[in-house]
Write a protein that binds this DNA or RNA. Structure first.
Ligand SMILES: [Mn+2]
Ligand SMILES: [Mn+2]
Ligand SMILES: [Zn+2]
Ligand SMILES: [Zn+2]
Lengths: 136, 136
DNA sequence: GAGCATGTGAGAACTGTTGTCGACTGCGGG
DNA sequence: CCCGCAGTCGACAACAGTTCTCACATGCTC
């Protein structure tokens, strides 16, 4: 049975005040800095539970770090600014259909997909953010 | 200046005989098992160089491990069997355009994207492979 | 409140990856 | 040829992110 703890509630609350994606370690550091007493392991367990509950969405950075964000329920993808981390949720029925069709054509079943778009947001571009190269 | 070494050549050759995606560690183990003497660091350096040369394509598993595969030059994506690792390269101009358009609509520039499709291939499905759940 | 399954957290362990550095070697110039 | 040396190798240590361990704490049910 899943129990209601101060820590779990607190981690969940952090994502109410946070835009974009954030790592477990970052959340832990923020909480500690704010005077919240919590262990790193607990933060990891909390974000994992929240992902399973559909409260958070997680993606992986190029560096291999898992980052998390409060997430709306319906299926969507992310448009992430490489410079500031700002994130837009985007939807595209076309893409969904394409992925399913292509998989079906190859005889694949039980199909899922991952899709993220990366770029430099208008604000960062204006501010002269550095551009990275990364083939998709 | 980039030098031609036995090790670099050997790593490159390994991917000629390998279908699907494979990790640096796996490649290292295979080479060692085949009597090839090579260091793990060297394998890492080699696959990284090969990715930069466009010889290999790399994606990241859910577990955060980088895996590599010999890759054709033109831009494409992958349809990967969760059970056996079998991989199909797929292309979709529709998706490319959709990603660019959506990013542009949000004022993003310098846009790239990552897109992978996962499923169970026909052979594995017939063989009764287990199905995983993984939201896209 | 008592009992106990569940959760916590400090620290150790693990995993994939990168850094270090003395030894080695492809390769262009002499 | 062989010299010189920048580029490379590889055993090993270091790192980063994540997970495990286990003694202790604490929600929940009764
Ligand atoms: Mn989708
Ligand atoms: Mn594409
Ligand atoms: Zn930005
Ligand atoms: Zn398969």
């Amino acid at each position: 049975m899943i129990r209601n703890t101060r820590q779990r509630t607190a981690v969940n609350a952090v994502f109410d005040e946070l835009e974009g994606f954030h790592s477990a370690q970052e959340v832990h550091a923020r909480m500690r800095a704010a005077g919240d007493s919590i262990g790193l392991s607990t933060v990891y367990r909390a974000v994992q539970a929240l992902v399973e509950d559909g409260e958070l969405d997680s993606i992986r950075t190029d560096a291999g770090e898992a980052i998390y964000r409060r997430c709306s329920a319906r299926h969507h993808h992310h448009l992430v600014c490489r410079a500031c981390g700002r994130t837009e949720e985007v939807e595209g029925p076309t893409v969904e259909r394409w992925a399913d069709r292509v998989a079906a054509e190859h005889g694949f079943v039980d199909v899922t997909h991952s899709l993220e778009i990366f770029g430099t947001c208008a604000a960062c571009h204006r501010a002269g953010a550095p551009s990275a190269d990364r083939p998709g």
